[in-house]
Nucleic acid binder design. Structure first.
Lengths: 215, 215
DNA sequence: TTGACAGTTGACCGATCAGTCAAGTAAAGT
DNA sequence: ACTTTACTTGACTGATCGGTCAACTGTCAA
């Protein structure tokens, strides 16, 4: 009995699911309403426009994963571990979405933000804001790493931007190719971008030919 | 008088311009026809569907820049120079499109491919093909570099994929933020990704504070 | 001269788009 | 008991979507 009226949440959930699993184009007001089991009149009781709902759905979803980001990027974790963890987190999330949605979905912010003309101010602005916030996590981790000597270089901001662009590019590639491979070893690309030697093979003494698992 | 009937070309041009400058959603059949100065009936005389036209427009545009790619990635050019040149080429192209379209447009293949549900087989398939072809240029250059010792590492394919993802991510970021900055120094990210030292500052003795241009 | 045919035209189709609205329900506030 | 308020509903609008069609035009070949 914690919540009797969850209409708004159902709309936000349905919208984000359509945005992420399908596309901005697939997330029509009618489709969102049908998926949420809500009539269109109710939709416009809670949101003044479709743009409004889309922006709210992106924001709500980001807020829901933010605690996880705060945990992963905790200052109590060594900077390189934060990077390893976020790469693994992104990979696992894509794997989970693949099972649930039946396809690789990539990053919703890049997909949605990239698929609107800049005129759609509200939506693209929201994706910009969220991605800027995500960038800060990377920037802080890299700056901490540079401070403790675990990461070479001095310009944490520029390094974070490059790493972020690489990750987003890999997510987009995974979506377009409908293939998890681009996001399977994000840490290798991230470490290379930062001028770090690649991680030793995961798992202790995992038999000889680790590289063969590629095939 | 070389061409009396350029209707098909006008449709392809108009379509690609809308796809690139605006979005897949903005490239409606009506909008394409209006921009091309062609009636819808004629459209369907040349193309059997909108998907058909979009795929053809993407392919046609790629074919039109292919000679430039072949020149940039010529085997007669040192591998590192090929990478420098393609980064500069992409930057200049984005700059030119910015002037022409009034905004940063990014990579049309990533934008279009990322903004359709995988169901749109034809279109997403075409973007996949084109991007796979582009990847081969990078792969060859990197393999040549690894062969002559100018690039460290052994797995040219994996390195090319990482570099490609980074470049695409930067193009997408530039589009979403409507800002050229992410594509202004692609070579730095590319070189870092390949484990290379950054290029020395461009231009001989370009006054002291090169880094100040950032602000 | 007459077809044949590539190309063009504008009217038209049903479906779907985002968004509106008046009427209704039900619970909370007075 | 009465009103206010939050929410729901289904029918509706005009615009636009992708796509069709029969009729028309010009050109070139037989």
């Amino acid at each position: 009995m914690v919540k009797v009226n969850d209409t708004k949440e159902r709309l936000l959930d349905a919208a984000h699911q359509l945005l992420w699993d399908e596309s901005l184009a697939a997330a029509s007001v009618d489709a969102i309403c049908e998926k949420a089991g809500v009539k269109k009149g109710s939709f416009y009781h809670f949101f003044k426009s479709k743009e409004d709902l889309v922006a709210a759905a992106l924001e709500a979803k980001f807020q829901s994963v933010k605690p996880e980001l705060d945990r992963i990027f905790s200052s109590s974790v060594p900077p390189l571990d934060r990077l390893r963890k976020i790469c693994d987190f992104l990979h696992q999330m894509q794997r989970q979405k693949l099972e649930q949605a039946g396809r690789v979905v990539g990053c919703p912010y890049a997909s949605v933000g990239g698929s609107c003309s800049s005129e759609d101010g509200t939506i693209q602005g929201k994706t910009r804001d969220i991605m800027a916030t995500q960038l800060k996590y990377l920037e802080t981790a890299i700056r901490d790493g540079q401070a403790d000597g675990s990461i070479p270089g001095r310009d944490a901001r520029a390094a974070a931007e490059s790493v972020f662009d690489f990750i987003e590019g890999a997510m987009t590639a995974a979506r377009i190719r409908n293939d998890l491979k681009p996001v399977q070893n994000l840490d290798r690309g991230v470490f290379a971008m930062l001028g770090l030697p690649p991680d030793p093979l995961p798992g202790p003494a995992k038999a000889g030919a680790g590289a063969k698992a590629r095939a």
